[in-house]
């Protein structure tokens, strides 16, 4: 009998300590010290929220850099990958389709090698990054569509290269930030 009472009391005490005091305290500290990070790195322009730095968006128009394929088409309420296995014909068909599409969009030869990050979907379905090389591949198309010189677009890509741990991380670019930079250059 005593064990039941102890167990109930412990459950209540720990629920208050770990389920209320702890998360509320961490939230309080976070909101004071890291308000931007704690609220999702939201990007605001003209008083409108246009995205989160960390969450990718779906880009299909020729004016923008395209990101990785997403199993959820960047529907951020349901994150997740394709979960297609390495021998699944469905995956091969999808990848093949994406390869053909990219070769057409970027005017590549029909036997060119396409970067894996542009045709294989991310685990979260929300990844905002691609390899720098994969961005460079898209420069001619964007320059043409926007009437920029290729060097101008190249500069924008270079300005946005990120790599957190020097020598370990492969340099990446954030597709959303790139595209915002493109839009800002237009004005």
């Amino acid at each position: 009998m005593k064990a039941i009472k102890n167990a109930l009391l412990m459950f209540v005490v720990f629920s208050v300590l770990l389920g209320i005091i702890y998360p509320v305290a961490i939230t309080g500290i976070s909101q004071v010290v890291f308000p931007h990070q704690a609220n999702g790195y939201l990007i605001t322009e003209n008083e409108k929220v246009i995205g989160s730095e960390l969450i990718g968006q779906n880009f299909t128009s020729p004016y923008y850099f395209h990101g990785r394929p997403s199993a959820t088409v960047y529907d951020s309420v349901t994150s997740g990958g394709s979960n297609l296995g390495p021998t699944n014909q469905k995956l091969m068909d999808e990848v093949n389709e994406r390869i053909q599409q990219i070769r057409i969009e970027e005017s590549l030869s029909s036997n060119s090698t396409v970067p894996a990050d542009l045709v294989l979907s991310s685990g979260s379905g929300l990844e905002a990054y691609i390899y720098v090389e994969s961005a460079r591949l898209q420069i001619p198309r964007i320059a043409k569509a926007r009437g920029f010189s290729e060097a101008e677009v190249e500069n924008i890509v270079e300005d946005n290269v990120e790599g957190w741990i020097v020598g370990i991380d492969t340099p990446l670019v954030n597709v959303l930030k790139l595209n915002i930079a493109l839009d800002n250059t237009r004005r």
Binding site: I29, S30, V33, Q37, A38, D75, V77
Partner: peptide, 29 residues
Amino acid sequence: VSQGVVQTFNSYAIVQTLEGSTQTIPLGP
């Protein structure tokens, strides 16, 4: 949190994407 793991009680953010669709970004503690 310092690197961007969210910690907030705000409701999900509704976002107008660059290509003009809406994206609902989940948040939370």
